[in-house]
């Protein structure tokens, strides 16, 4: 969906996050887990970017870097603040980050683990307000009531504890808390994967509705491609710490340019017995980010691998306008998408 005058809210450039691997008594660094390895992407104001890839590919690490819950090893994260200035989040110290924290919030996967069981809804949702300096209890109560209504919960529930709520309701509580300070960028890390099927749709509708009403920008992390296709304007695919492909959702599903993306699409079990899927032969396993293969990280599993792939890492480049891929053969391959 094209938005007029789209401006990047966030631009990530050459972002890296390496974790040291330490061994022995002296905890000497013997290597690095290249959890996020030189990634580049942007998110326009008001859009939803999907971040997909298999377990351990670096999705959560990348998200936590953006929110500066982790400090990146190197790279830039250019954020357009509410006042219109562009700042590099990677360069800011704690003090400088503080006023920006409100503008970037996170929704977590686990609606059970992420809420303190000893706090009431008022305390949970009102906590960010208190931290931001809203001392007046009355005003906090009003704002919490407003937030609860916004996510479809009854304000009368304010004095209850989270255990009295179902999974879907708890996810709403988490969303209300994330929205307390009027964020502009919301990072949602697998927000529906722990929810029951019948409650997933309610939560997805809520996220869409809130986006429209509050002009939110989402980074939507998920391994569920059906959900990503439904919710996202554009999609970025990661494999072993690197971005292998980015395109509009429509393009990505219709005409993938990277063999790994095509394999992911083919593996997706479609909820229709008349469409047979899953006939994908991906030999071997996902490589470890601690010792990635030479050349293209995907080459040991790729059906289209040529000699060049084994030695030379493919550049991440624009294949057609707005469609980026990191594959030597992206122009010539004719990969199947989904119907």
């Amino acid at each position: 969906m094209m938005k007029t005058a789209a401006q990047p809210l966030l631009e990530v450039k050459d972002l890296r996050k390496f974790f040291p691997i330490r061994k022995g008594f002296l905890r000497k660094t013997v290597g690095y887990v290249r959890a996020v390895d030189d990634i580049n992407f942007f998110i326009n104001e008001g859009e939803t970017l999907g971040l997909v890839g298999e377990s351990g590919c670096g999705k959560t690490t990348a998200s936590r870097c953006i929110l500066r819950a982790l400090s990146p090893t190197s790279g830039q994260m250019l954020f357009r603040t509410a006042s219109g200035d562009v700042v590099d989040l990677a360069q800011l110290n704690r003090e400088q980050l503080k006023p920006l924290r409100a503008q970037m919030q996170m929704i977590f996967q686990d609606p059970y683990g992420s809420l303190n069981p000893r706090m009431t809804l008022f305390d949970i949702v009102g906590e960010p307000l208190l931290i931001a300096g809203m001392r007046n209890r009355r005003r906090r109560e009003e704002r919490v009531a407003e937030l609860l209504r916004l996510v479809g919960l009854r304000p009368e529930f304010m004095q209850r504890f989270p255990h009295a709520f179902s999974g879907g309701q708890r996810q709403r509580i988490g969303i209300a808390r994330a929205l307390a300070l009027n964020p502009r960028l919301v990072v949602a890390d697998e927000p529906v994967s722990a929810l029951d099927v019948s409650v997933q749709a309610q939560t997805l509708n809520l996220l869409l509705d809130l986006q429209k009403r509050l002009n939110l920008t989402y980074l939507f992390v998920s391994h569920n491609l059906s959900v990503v296709r439904h919710l996202c304007d554009r999609v970025t695919v990661m494999y072993v710490g690197k971005i292998v492909e980015t395109a509009t959702s429509q393009e990505m599903f219709a005409r993938p340019r990277h063999p790994y993306t095509a394999a992911l699409l083919a593996a997706l079990p479609v909820a229709d017995p008349r469409i047979k899927t899953g006939n994908v032969e991906l030999p071997g396993e996902v490589a470890s980010p601690a010792c990635p293969p030479s050349g293209c990280y995907f080459h040991p599993r790729c059906t289209y691998c040529i000699d060049r792939c084994k030695t030379e890492a493919p550049a991440y480049r624009e294949i057609t306008p707005g469609h980026y891929a990191a594959c030597h053969r992206a122009d010539e391959l004719n990969l199947a998408g989904m119907a």
């Binding site: 969906m1 099927v197 019948s198 749709a201 869409l208 296709r229």
Partner: peptide, 14 residues
């Protein structure tokens, strides 16, 4: 309630 191949993207699901 689950998004399918035919569901139009970004509209409310039943």
């Amino acid at each position: 309630s689950i998004p399918s191949v035919d569901t139009p993207p970004r509209v409310d699901l039943p």
